[in-house]
Amino acid sequence: MFKREYKYNFKSFLIWTTITLGIFLIVYLMYPSIVSSDNIKMIDEMMKVFPPEMLKAFNMDIASMNSAYGWLKSEGFVFVLLIIGCYAGILGANILLKEENDKTVEYLNSLPIKRTSIVLNKVLVGLINITLLVLLLGIFNYIGLTLSGDFDIKQFILLSITPLFPALVLFFTCLFISTFTHKTKKTLGISLGIVLISYILQTLSTIAEPVEFLKYFSAFTLADIRNVIMNVSINPFMIIITIILSLMFLSLTIIHYNKKELV
């Protein structure tokens, strides 16, 4: 089952990977000309115009845009988090539900396999693909940055790992939500909505102090990029929370899927 599932999902994985790497390739190709020109001074001047809260939201207060690595730490990671988050959310919403949407579930259910095993096989495929996307993007960025100038390797490695935390929580959240419906059409919008709202909540919590509490409702808080940039370390608390939330949603998915009417 794992083999077929992996083969089936590999196509969409390739598309997502190609698009993501394509975006970053463009940046790496363009950045040398931006950095060497006078434009970079103008960009730095322009940054001063923005309110400090706004700069903080995109980590521009602790990372300068005068290098490719500086860009990656600020704007670049907004893309990384959102792209990997969207991929994880959509994958979670579809991977189990697709069998019901395509009506193959009637055949699958007649086979000698437990519903829990069905969930676990699919989850394994999801986890491998999300981790691979994070890994490939990390390797690609490493090559890009190596060709673009100096950068802190340890900080970069830790930064590259962080998108995995929100992505896993988003994957399992959307997987759980998908057990409440029979059609993928319904969950696609919901999963993308969850990813975007989660990101907005995290951004708002950084911009305005009175709504700082919103960070507790966002999966992206788990990426904790500011801490990684400033202290060159991952807060173990974020790893623990990621594992707890992932296991909680996985358990809820298994419990609910075992009770679900599949047709």
Binding site: R4, Y8, D102, K103, T104, E106, Y107, S110
Partner: peptide
Amino acid sequence: PSEISLYE
């Protein structure tokens, strides 16, 4: 099943 759906 009456309407069989398999992996296309």
